[in-house]
Design a protein around this nucleic acid. Structure first.
Length: 106
DNA sequence: TGTTTGACGGACA
DNA sequence: CTGTCCGCCAAAC
C-alpha cells in the first residue's frame, strides 16, 4: 500500500470490498448487501455503496455489476451503469435487472 | 458537537 | 406493485 493514508479500519474494508467486487464474473451481478456480507461486514451495505462512490472514474473494478437488493440500479449515473450492464450481456429494463437470472452465486 | 445525508436492506401495511 | 419505518454508520455540514 503506497497510498500515504493511514491504514484505518475503513481502508482495510475498502480493499476487501474491492476484492469481492472484482470477483464478480462478467454477465453476473451482486447486491450491495451481498458484497457487504462477503467482505465480512453484514448489515453494512451502505458502506459498500459509499466505498464504490469514491472509486476513481477510470477504475477497472466492475462496480457496475453491483445493484441494490431489488435489482435496481442505484448509481446516480444510471445511463453509464445500465450501458455497461448491457455490454456484459445483461438485460436491463427500466433501470432494473433480474436478480433471479443474473445474481452471482459465489 | 449535533444533525443531515447517502450507489442500502429488511420488515411490514 | 408502492410507501413507511427503522437499523446502520462514515462523511459532510
Amino acid at each position: 500500500m503506497l497510498t500515504g493514508k493511514p491504514m484505518t479500519k475503513t481502508t482495510e474494508l475498502e480493499a476487501l470490498v474491492w476484492q469481492c467486487v472484482s470477483a464478480i464474473p462478467e454477465g453476473q451481478i451482486a447486491t450491495y448487501g451481498q458484497i457487504a456480507h462477503l467482505a465480512g461486514m453484514p448489515q453494512q451495505a451502505r458502506l459498500v455503496g459509499r466505498i464504490l462512490s469514491r472509486l476513481p472514474p477510470d477504475t477497472r473494478l466492475p462496480w457496475h455489476r453491483v445493484v441494490n437488493s431489488r435489482g435496481e440500479v442505484s448509481n446516480p449515473n444510471l445511463l453509464l451503469q445500465c450501458g455497461r450492464l448491457k455490454e456484459d450481456g445483461i438485460s436491463v429494463d427500466r433501470n432494473r435487472v433480474s436478480l433471479r437470472l443474473y445474481q452471482w452465486q459465489p
